[in-house]
Computed example of a mutant assay.
Amino acid sequence: MDDQLALRIRLFREGGQVPPEVVDFVAAELSSLEDEGHVVTEASAGMLTSHLMMALGRLLGGEPIEQFLTDDQVASELAGHPGAVARARAVSARAERDLGAALPESEVNFLGMHLAVLGGRSGSVPAD
Rank of each mutant, 00 (worst) to 15 (best):
E66C: 15
L59T: 07
L59I: 12
T49D: 01
S31W: 15
S50Q: 06
I65V: 15
G57N: 02
T41P: 00
S31D: 12
D35L: 14
L48E: 00
I65G: 08
E63R: 15
E66D: 07
A55C: 09
M47N: 15
S50C: 12
A45Q: 00
V40Q: 00
P64L: 12
Q67N: 15
E63K: 15
G62P: 06
L59M: 04
S31F: 00
H38V: 03
G46D: 00
A45S: 03
G57C: 02
I65K: 06
A45N: 00
L30D: 05
E34N: 13
E63L: 14
S32R: 13
G61K: 09
T49G: 04
G62F: 07
V39C: 09
L33N: 08
E29D: 14
H51D: 10
S32G: 13
H38P: 05
E36G: 05
E36N: 10
S50A: 14
E34R: 11
L30F: 03
M53Y: 03
R58T: 08
R58P: 06
E34F: 12
E34H: 15
A55K: 11
H51Y: 11
H51G: 02
S44P: 03
T41V: 04
E36P: 04
E34G: 07
P64A: 12
E66R: 10
S31N: 13
M53Q: 14
H51T: 05
A45L: 02
L59F: 09
L60R: 12
A45M: 02
S50F: 11
G37Q: 04
A55H: 11
G57D: 02
G37F: 06
G61I: 09
S44I: 01
S31Y: 04
M47W: 08
R58E: 03
M47L: 14
L30P: 02
T41L: 05
E42L: 11
I65F: 04
E42S: 08
P64F: 09
H51L: 03
A55S: 14
L48P: 01
P64R: 08
H38A: 10
P64G: 09
S32W: 13
